[in-house]
Simulated scan of single mutants.
Amino acid sequence: MSYLCPLCHTPLNEHDRQWRCVNNHQFDRAKEGYVNLMPVQFKHSRQPGDNADMMQARRAFLDGGFYHPLRQAVCTLLDQALPAQAGQVLDIGCGEGYYTAQIASALESRSIKTFGLDIAKVAVRYAAKRYPQVSFCVASSHRLPYADASMDGVVRIYAPCRAGELARVVSAGGILVTVSPGPRHLYQLKAQVYEQVVLHAQKEEILPGFALEREETLSYVLELPGEQAVNLLQMTPFAWRAAPAVFQSLAALERFSCETDFTIRLYRRNP
């Protein structure tokens, strides 16, 4: 499968480390193997997405295995629910590839090709260098650079994406797996930042063209050393609201207990 040109939406073909469309729009393949399909006119900032500090914190935390149960649950669900003849799977908002690489490994015996997409170039560069078995690109999740009905499965862990784009790229009978925070996700960490902790609101996501087939929760308690508690805070949106003293107090702790609470949903694309 080729990518679609983000400018004219025609197929891109690879020629000598370049992806090129019939209208001669060209995109270089980086030495790490990924392709940047994020034209400058589509950017809302110079470096969209997570910055290097956030990416490094997330990498250190995830490499510690603290979200391994979530990764395993997503991979198992994918393998069970994907159509028998599935050929391609996409991880939207793949970051540094922690989930993407395991998805590729779990589906390797079925010869399913795995793609990863993220808006953050620094994360995709790292992912492509570390996981060459995955096809990574820098692109907007609101303008997916893939052909209609080209993906038999899509994974979306926290990442935003237009419902119409999901319906466009997922094949008939294909699946969408989403992960969102449950009501008490990271409750104790939030309590370090906010005087009053508000539980995550739970609402059913309506996705035209899809039927909700399964919903489950995954909850467990993290037991973190102080430096990993800091990494966890650094990779969350509410890190922006945390005073320096919060980071200092977490770093000084020998052990920090914190709840996880994930909601995992499986949607099936209507035939």
Rank of each mutant, 00 (worst) to 15 (best):
A101L: 00
M151D: 05
V134N: 03
E165W: 11
Q47V: 07
L82R: 04
G93D: 03
S111Q: 15
L117E: 02
Y131N: 13
R168H: 07
V138Q: 02
R110T: 05
P83M: 09
P48V: 07
V74D: 01
S135D: 14
R130W: 01
G153Q: 09
E108N: 10
K121M: 06
K121F: 04
D152C: 04
D79L: 11
M151C: 12
A139G: 13
Y131F: 15
S150Y: 09
K121Q: 13
L77P: 00
T100E: 09
I92C: 13
I112K: 04
P132L: 11
R162V: 02
I119S: 08
K113L: 12
F61C: 07
Y158C: 06
Q56F: 04
K113H: 14
M54P: 05
L70Y: 08
A149H: 15
P48N: 07
G49V: 09
A73K: 14
R58P: 08
A147C: 05
C161S: 15
S140P: 00
P48T: 07
A159G: 12
L107E: 03
P160N: 11
L62P: 02
V155E: 04
G97P: 08
M55Y: 00
I157G: 00
Q102Y: 13
Y131A: 02
A167G: 04
A159P: 11
Q72F: 01
L78Q: 11
V134M: 07
A57M: 07
A149T: 13
D148L: 11
A52M: 08
Q85W: 01
Y99C: 09
L117D: 03
G65Q: 10
V155M: 13
M54A: 06
L166H: 03
T100P: 01
V170D: 02
P48C: 08
I112V: 15
A101I: 00
G65T: 12
Y146S: 03
C137I: 02
V169Y: 00
C75R: 08
Y67H: 12
S111N: 14
Q133M: 13
D118Y: 09
D91V: 09
C161F: 03
A139K: 01
D79F: 03
Q85E: 15
I92H: 01
H142S: 13
A106E: 12
V124F: 05
S150V: 09
R130G: 00
M151Y: 05
A101G: 10
T114S: 09
G64R: 09
C94N: 04
V155R: 03
V169S: 03
Y99P: 06
A120W: 00
P69L: 10
G95T: 10
A159L: 11
Q133V: 04
G49P: 11
P83K: 09
P145E: 11
Y67W: 05
V124A: 08
S111Y: 06
L117H: 02
Q102R: 14
V154I: 14
I112F: 05
A73S: 14
G95A: 10
I157V: 15
P83N: 09
D152T: 02
V124P: 01
G93K: 06
Q133Y: 02
N51K: 07
V124M: 07
K129V: 00
S141E: 07
R110P: 01
C137R: 00
V170A: 06
